[in-house]
Structures are given as C-alpha cells and as structure tokens.
C-alpha cells in the first residue's frame, strides 16, 4: 500500500509554553494534536496549531527554507532549524522547547538577535582596513579562487544559535564566545582583506572567554545545521593563538 492511501498519523506536539509578559503565567507543557500531512515540516505544523488551535502561540519563522536561521528550537531536546525538520522523520510524539540561553520572548520565540549583535560588536566582525581608500571605479583586488571558496565556507554561518544552545562551556561561562564567535574569527583571520594581526586576534579571543575556554565537547559541530567545520577551526585557532601567546 502506498503512502497516499495510508491513514495519516496523529501527531502529539508537546510545547513548553510561557509568556513572560503575563504575570499569571508560568512555564508549562501544552499538547496539541494535529493530523500529519504529506511533506509536513514543523513550520507547517506550528502554523496549523496557531491558525486552528491557539492563535497566541509564539514562534519565529522568516525564510522557512533553512536559510535565515530564525527558527532554531529544541526538537526532542536537540537544537535545530524547525522549518526544515520533516515530521515524518520524528516519532508521533514531538517535544518542542525554546532555545536555551537566549532571552525568551514567549513560547518558542527567543531573542537571538541581540545576543548575536553583541557578539559581532565584541569581536568586530568586519573587514579592518583603515589604510586603503577605496576607489570603486577601479578593478577589484584579486583573490585566489580557492581562498574565496574557503572564506565562503566559513561565511555560511547563519547565526541561528544552535551551536550556542548545544555548547557545554557556555552553560558554565556565559561570556564564552561560542563556536559561532570562534568561526567568525577563523573566517576573518583567513581573509587577507582584514588587516588585523595575530596579536589583534589574540586580544579578542586568546583567553578563557575565547578559544582557550572551549572544553572540546563539540556539541556545536554535532548540531550545526550548515555543517560548518567547527571542530577543525577551533583546533586551528587554538594552535595559532598558542603560537601567538608564546611569542
């Protein structure tokens, strides 16, 4: 019998709910039952719950295509992008909770934006090149094609926060920059357009809040939805920072 004629599953979606703006509310689990549809993702399922069961249910989706990083949440305890999680890959009992460590806006909606902005400002994640006055009429500076590809590889981070939620170190040290931060340093260090020296980078992450804080549990690498090479980049940065520190 093919899947078209099979009776659809009844999904039981258990959601950790809390509205911090409601003085009488407290964190609690609530279960919604919906019928599974073909090709259903958690994006579809949650919108169905909002439209037909509880219009106050809070969650964040923007691109719903796995590109923008808005919808990370704990799916059965594991941080991931909800929009591209197909329900057919899960049991009929599904537990959803907001991403830990970030400010809760309500239910499954968390404020990753402020956290990421703080990180970017702290690590100055932009090209530092005060020397050069850019003339936009002239040919662009050349770059080796492989190098451009390597930079793009690390530039693919979508700041979804999964690595932060999956990080053991940050649970104990909230000032830890996380894999997202270290990956950004690796990205700019690789980029010849950024004129910061090894010493400059050492100042930024050469300590317990940076690359030496990592306990190497590597939950980050396990949960990264973009499969970034976080493990090897953290190891690389550590060797580089050690060399710089010993200079």
């Amino acid at each position: 019998m093919n899947s078209v004629t099979e009776k659809p599953r009844l999904l039981k979606i258990h959601i950790l709910r809390f509205d911090p703006h409601d003085e009488n509310d407290f964190p609690h689990m609530e279960t919604f039952e919906i019928e599974e549809a073909h090709g259903m993702t958690l994006f579809v399922a949650l919108n169905e719950i909002r439209e037909h069961h509880d219009n106050a249910l809070k969650f964040d989706f923007v691109c719903r295509a796995g590109i923008c990083g808005s919808c990370s949440m704990l799916v059965n305890g594991r941080p991931t992008l909800a929009c591209r999680t197909l329900t057919k890959k899960l049991d009929s009992d599904i537990t959803l909770a907001p991403l830990p460590l970030f400010e809760l806006i309500g239910d499954l909606s968390v404020n990753t934006g402020t956290w990421m902005r703080g990180l970017n400002e702290r690590l100055e994640t932009w090209i530092h090149d005060k020397e050069q006055e850019l003339n936009v009429d002239k040919l662009e500076e050349k770059m080796e094609p492989e190098l451009a590809d390597e930079i793009y590889e690390l530039d693919r981070c979508i700041e979804c926060g999964c690595c932060v939620a999956g990080c053991g170190t940050i649970q104990m040290n909230p000032d830890f920059v996380g894999a997202v931060g270290l990956n950004k340093i690796a990205r700019y260090h690789l980029d010849p357009r950024d004129k910061r020296s090894d010493e400059d980078y050492y100042e930024l992450v050469g300590d317990q809040d940076g690359v030496f804080g990592c306990m190497t549990l590597l939950g980050c690498e396990d949960v990264c939805p973009k499969d970034l090479p976080l493990q090897s980049k953290i190891a690389y940065l550590r060797r580089m920072m050690l060399r710089t520190g010993l200079k």
């Binding site: 090209i127 936009v136 793009y152």
Partner: peptide, 19 residues
C-alpha cells in the same frame, strides 16, 4: 552596479573568482 559590487568586495563578500 560595478561600483556597488567592488564596494561589497572590499567589505568582505567572498565573491567567486575567475580561475
């Protein structure tokens, strides 16, 4: 458009390059 892309190149976009 060429000016805008060159500006973005200077700001860090890793444009794919000619081999």
């Amino acid at each position: 458009a060429p000016k805008a892309i060159r500006e973005l190149a200077a700001w860090g976009v890793p444009w794919s390059r000619v081999q």
